[in-house]
Design a protein around this nucleic acid. Structure first.
Lengths: 231, 231
DNA sequence: TCAATAGTGTCTGTTAGACATTATGGA
DNA sequence: TCCATAATGTCTAACAGACACTATTGA
């Protein structure tokens, strides 16, 4: 045990500068894409994450929704905080503290404004170091929580085929999945329900459309898995 | 798609008041316990989470470590951000924004200062609404990430028995686990290694001591599980 | 008819959980 | 000796993954 510190805790708030930095994610052709905005020419990097300070009385996710609406023209379907940083790395607005928020949006929803563009996660241009950290955190968080939170469904339109859904899982996890196993596990989860519609695209048998409709789970109680200790 | 908003994004930081609110967690007799500090008599509630503003240039986890050292006399073994809140709920210091951080500490490490006390998670006294939300988030996050992060090991001393470890998992998950299955899964995970020491407590066969020593994992690649969609 | 995609049935190796058994100490 | 806890072996049901097969459309 260490020595007891002499100074007691006299808690007090401190004023600081805060930004909400949004990682808008959407599935593009065979890759997850991030929405970046063109930075003013005075900036060190030509691109940055969309960001802003929350307005007075505005919640953090509300701010993320507003920012996303401005750059994409559509509100995201889902938010996930990916961590709050105060690490001294450079931020485009020199905010002391950044709240990183992943905003998930289905493909084909919205249209980036003139100064915004989609970039595949794997090939981003140079952005401020703080923003780079936030993007990396967002990717890690999304991959880590994909099977504990309905993230994948928020990257799809309300009606989707099981192949679409599997494709999103494969994008998020970065590896191929086994079709029959995927469907069996999905069936057992009672997360989706079939609709009376079918979707035909080009050749091949049309696929039935499903919607996200989680049912009350019977107490599954699976065992401990000691998984993903990849730190 | 919605109408394109008229206002473009002119991002700017805003000054706000920030607090780091720490949920110090430690296993006590058959329950996870939270460390609360006695609030000044002027406060609405008699107890609160330990909290403070981060100092200039101090990272958020550094602040959490400092706060924990003051109230417990020992640095926590591990931190996990449990969410940043700006929801308008009441905070003891009226901070606009709170960063909630869970700090894990093994049993028997440190000694609470005079004005601090351990409370079982299940029976907390009245605390400010913002703090209540943070505690609930912390409990949920710890339960959700226990098998993806070495949380359980940070609630134990460096050397522990497998029964101790299983006990911590049972505390975190809130249910009993099967002994043989637990040990098999642990064996397969290469997360612990046996030491040449044994621990005897009262009657019964002495238990071998283990240490947390994660090995490089062979690419396990387990399937998608669609688990814990309990939102 | 062929190509392409959707969807399903079967087999097999692995694993979680139940149960039983042995091991080793203290009272 | 008895009791309590540690640790492990065996059995079984459930399940993940591989493979093969059928189904249904467009070219």
């Amino acid at each position: 045990m260490r020595d007891r510190p002499v100074v007691l805790l006299k808690p007090a708030v401190r004023r600081t500068t805060l930004a909400v930095d949004v990682v808008v994610l959407s599935p593009r052709v065979d890759a997850l894409a991030v929405l970046l905005v063109r930075a003013p020419s005075s900036a060190r990097e030509r691109w940055s994450l969309p960001w802003d300070a929350p307005q007075v009385g505005e919640g953090l996710e509300d701010a993320a929704a507003r920012i996303t609406r401005v750059v994409l023209g559509a509100a995201p379907a889902f938010f996930e905080q990916v961590g709050t940083l105060s690490d001294g790395r450079r931020h485009p607005g020199d905010a002391e503290v950044s709240v990183g928020i992943a905003a998930l949006s289905p493909a084909g929803v919205g249209q980036p404004i003139m100064d915004a563009e989609w970039f595949p996660l794997a090939s981003l241009p140079a952005i401020a170091p703080r923003h780079r950290t936030i993007v990396d955190h967002a990717a890690a968080v999304v991959r880590q929580r994909v099977d504990q939170s309905p993230l994948a469904f928020r990257l799809l339109p309300p009606a989707f085929t099981l192949s679409d859904l599997q494709g999103v899982y494969e994008l998020l996890l970065g590896r191929r999945l086994h079709k029959a196993s995927f469907r069996r596990a999905l069936q057992a989860s009672y997360l989706v329900e079939p609709m009376d519609e079918w979707h035909s695209e080009g050749r091949g048998r049309p696929a039935q459309l499903f919607r996200y409709a989680p049912k009350k789970r019977r107490g599954v109680r699976r065992g401990v898995r000691f998984d993903l200790f990849t730190d």
